[in-house]
Design a protein around this nucleic acid. Structure first.
Lengths: 144, 144
DNA sequence: GGAACTAGTCAGCCTCTCTGACCAAATTAG
DNA sequence: CTAATTTGGTCAGAGAGGCTGACTAGTTCC
C-alpha cells in the first residue's frame, strides 16, 4: 500500500482518525475512560440489549474478542448482561444508565466536528460528501 | 461514540476498512505477507530511504514501535537499513527490490477499487467525493 | 570541550485479537 | 421422541502491536 499521491484509502482514513481521536479525548475529559475497541462494540448495542454473538458479527471480531471487550465494559459499569428471555443459552448485553451518559457527550463532539467540517467545506460540498459516503456504503458495508 | 444514524466517522471508516482488507488480500494472494501495521510504516519510506524517527512521526507511533515494525519488514526482506551518510547515529530505512514488488500490486488493487466505486457512484459523485476529502484533509491531517 | 539535544535500542508491560477446545441449550432429522 | 447438529457463550493460550522508561552513542551549540 505504498504511496502514490493521496489514494482514497488514506483520504478516508485521515479524517476518520481525527474524528475518533477527538471523540475519545472529549469522553476522557468528561471522566469516561473508554477505548476504541470497547467503543466499537458498545456502539452496536441496541435499545433492548444485543446478544454477544450479534455484537461480534457486527463489529467484525470473534465472539471471544467481543466477550473480552464486554467484560471490560461491564467491569467499568457501562453495560450489564441479563438473561435473554427467548433463549436460555443467550444473554443480552444492555447499556446501563451510567453507560448511557457517554452517548450525549460523544454525540456533542461529533456534532461539533461536523459543524467545523461543514464550515470548512461549505454546505454544498459537505452535503455532497455525506451523500457520496452514504452511497458508497452500499458497496462496502457487509451489513448494509 | 454510540449510535445515531450514520455519523460521518462510521461512514468514513466503512469504505476505509473495505479498501484496506482488499489490498491486503491481494498482496497475500500474490505471496506477500504484510500486516496493516507494517504497511503503515512501509508506505512512508521515501525514494532514498527514511530515518526511523521520521517514519515514527509520520505513522504516528513511537520510535520503539516503528523500530519493531521495521525489524519485521527487514526480516521479511522488504526493507534494509543502511548508514545515513549525513549522521553517524542514524540509519536510513530503504525499500529493497523485493519490497518494491509489492507496490504495483497494491496500486493495482487500489485502482480496481476506485474504478468500482466510481462505477457505483457515477463520475460526478466520485469526483465530488475525492474533492471533498482532499479539502477535508486540510483541517484533519497533522501532516498536511 | 562540556551541556543539551537527537537517533536508535533494550526491557518490560498492557491491550486487542486470534485459534482451538469445550459446555449447554435449542433445533432439526429420522 | 430420541439423536445429531447447530448455536450462544466461555476458557486457555498465543501472538501482534502499541506504550513508557531507561539507556548508549553521536551531534550541535555555546
Amino acid at each position: 500500500m505504498p504511496d502514490d499521491d493521496p489514494n482514497l484509502g488514506l483520504l478516508l482514513f485521515i479524517p476518520y482518525r481525527s474524528l475518533e481521536n477527538r471523540v475519545f479525548a472529549r469522553l476522557a475529559a468528561a471522566g469516561f475512560e473508554i477505548t476504541p475497541a470497547q467503543a466499537r462494540v458498545f456502539q452496536r448495542i441496541g435499545a433492548n440489549g444485543t446478544r454477544l454473538t450479534d455484537l461480534a458479527d457486527q463489529a467484525q471480531v470473534t465472539k471471544q474478542t467481543a466477550g473480552f471487550l464486554v467484560d471490560q465494559l461491564e467491569k467499568a459499569g457501562y453495560v450489564r448482561r441479563v438473561p435473554d428471555p427467548s433463549d436460555a443459552r443467550a444473554r443480552l448485553v444492555q447499556i446501563t444508565e451510567y453507560g448511557a451518559r457517554t452517548i450525549p457527550i460523544a454525540a456533542a463532539e461529533i456534532a461539533d466536528i461536523e459543524a467545523e467540517w461543514t464550515a470548512h467545506l461549505g454546505t454544498t460540498q459537505a452535503t455532497q460528501l455525506r451523500r457520496a459516503l452514504t452511497k458508497l456504503r452500499e458497496v462496502t458495508d457487509p451489513y448494509a
